[in-house]
Design a protein around this nucleic acid. Sequence first.
DNA 1: TGTGAAAAACCAAATAC
DNA 2: GTATTTGGTTTTTCACA
Lengths: 129, 129
Amino acid sequence: MDEKDYEILKLLRENSRMSNMEIARELKVSEGTIRKRIANLYKSGIIKKFTIETPSSVEAMILVRVDPKKAPYVLEKLKNIYHEIYELSGSIDVSIKLSKNTLDEINSEVDNIRSIDGVISTDTMIRLK
Amino acid sequence: MDEKDYEILKLLRENSRMSNMEIARELKVSEGTIRKRIANLYKSGIIKKFTIETPSSVEAMILVRVDPKKAPYVLEKLKNIYHEIYELSGSIDVSIKLSKNTLDEINSEVDNIRSIDGVISTDTMIRLK
DNA sequence: TGTGAAAAACCAAATAC
DNA sequence: GTATTTGGTTTTTCACA
């Protein structure tokens, strides 16, 4: 880890999607150098993963489309799990309000909902706090 | 946020450097679609930043090259800040051992060291715990 | 979404350190 | 001997219809 590696980490931490070329221009070396150094940083475990940061504390409104034939069963099931459920009158669609600390947790709830037999699709509105 | 956005987030969370094309192939849509959706996820704040994950709990050995003329001043300063300092006998080089919780903290220490007048360069050995 | 031009990534060989 | 650059090829990005 010399200064160059350290500069690379700094740039990637701010934007891991920055192209090798951009980084190379910034640090005034060739693209191949950057590519090999990043590969080494990754292999050595200093870069554990390239990832994204999502908001902490999110409120979600999950719109669930339900197969009409299975609606009663699905509604029953959802009501047992979630408090804030809104059935849209005269419709087979359901809306669930959810508050979680991370988007991950929201996503895992959406996964659960989507795995219920009779759920056709979901659409999630995110409100960042 | 529909299922597609959600799938995109899942992939990017595992590897934010995955190309739009790869994601497109995986989700069986066009590259342009992925690019636009990612741009929207970013603009809406659902993706806060593209970043890298570095190890928690790291031990570093920082090798510092010092300008011989300023060595006494630099050594004085370093000794005031760090406990584990090793002067290499008959040399102007100094080695500092450091334990921190994140690479960030190591890096900010390296920044401090590098900003000291008389420090020519640093080289950091990282041991992952 | 599909197309075409520009940019970036990749690979292997040559060179510098 | 390892790391970097260079030149040529493939792949990706990006704008526009």
